[in-house]
């Protein structure tokens, strides 16, 4: 029997100069699940991702992955325990080739050079970048750079992956393609995904559960269809889209 991993955040707080960016947020996720993190602009979604991956120091709260207290670790230790992320503003290594970019994900968690290359090639082919392996990353199209970032994250063979607006800047067709790539991953790769996204079609098609933030506070969580009909969510966020 496959053992499941659990990622959990308890009572997380973060203020910037008195402003509560993340206010007592708790969430948890198991491998195989997709959790959508949504909310209006400035509701603290990206801050939450930065806190969870150690890129920002939290004020208080607990972040754990299985029995590991990753909330107390420097950001570069977090991937070793199986938590990786992508960025809203694409952050790739522009002078490195696609292969090298993807390899970094694996090398970063201590995978050997050859094995890292093998993983990287496999993932690049899987994500449709197989014929661009030798190209410098900066020569890729916007869409391919997004996919490359995902390939790099997956090369770490993570248990959990945080995607920060992976569809931002993609057109409808490209978003559909992204959806069809991401959809099978929770099962094929046995990972849990937390996804921040404004594209509701992507969110509704991909997520098992939603977690809605507004002004840093959790205002709703649960199944997508329940959340969609939650009056507070409609008021805060979906208001314009639902009407």
């Amino acid at each position: 029997m496959e053992s499941k991993s659990t990622f959990s955040v308890k009572e997380l707080n973060k203020s910037f100069a008195g402003l509560k960016a993340v206010d007592n947020v708790s969430l948890h996720l198991e491998t195989g699940e997709v959790l959508g993190l949504i909310g209006p602009n400035g509701s603290g979604k990206t801050t939450l991702i930065n806190l969870m991956t150690g890129m920002l120091d939290k004020d208080s709260g607990h972040i754990s992955l299985d029995s590991h207290n990753i909330g107390e670790m420097p950001a570069y230790r977090v991937p070793f325990y199986g938590l990786v992320r992508t960025y809203q503003t694409i952050r790739i290594f522009k002078n490195l080739s696609c292969l090298e970019n993807a390899m970094i994900g694996a090398l970063g968690v201590g995978t050997k050079h050859r094995e890292a290359a093998r993983l990287a090639v496999g993932l690049l082919e899987e994500l449709g970048l197989g014929d661009k392996i030798d190209l410098p990353a900066q020569s890729l199209t916007f869409r391919d750079q997004r996919l490359l970032e995902i390939a790099r994250a997956l090369a770490a063979q993570p248990k959990f992956m945080l995607l920060d607006e992976p569809a931002a800047g993609l057109n409808e067709e490209e978003t559909d393609e992204l959806l069809s790539l991401l959809k099978p991953m929770p099962h094929s790769k046995k990972i849990g995904i937390i996804i921040v996204e404004h594209d509701m079609r992507l969110i509704m098609n991909l997520c098992n559960r939603l977690h809605v933030l507004n002004y840093g506070k959790t205002i709703a969580e649960g199944k997508p269809e329940d959340v969609r009909n939650n009056p507070e969510v409609v008021k805060a966020y979906l208001g314009s889209a639902a009407s």
């Binding site: 570069y76 290594f93 968690v109």
Partner: peptide, 20 residues
């Protein structure tokens, strides 16, 4: 290779597990 990654993007390198 890790060092070259930190040259191109320090933050992405950090969140990929590299202590720059």
């Amino acid at each position: 290779l890790k060092l070259r990654a930190t040259r191109d993007d320090r933050y992405a390198a950090r969140s990929s597990g590299i202590n720059f």
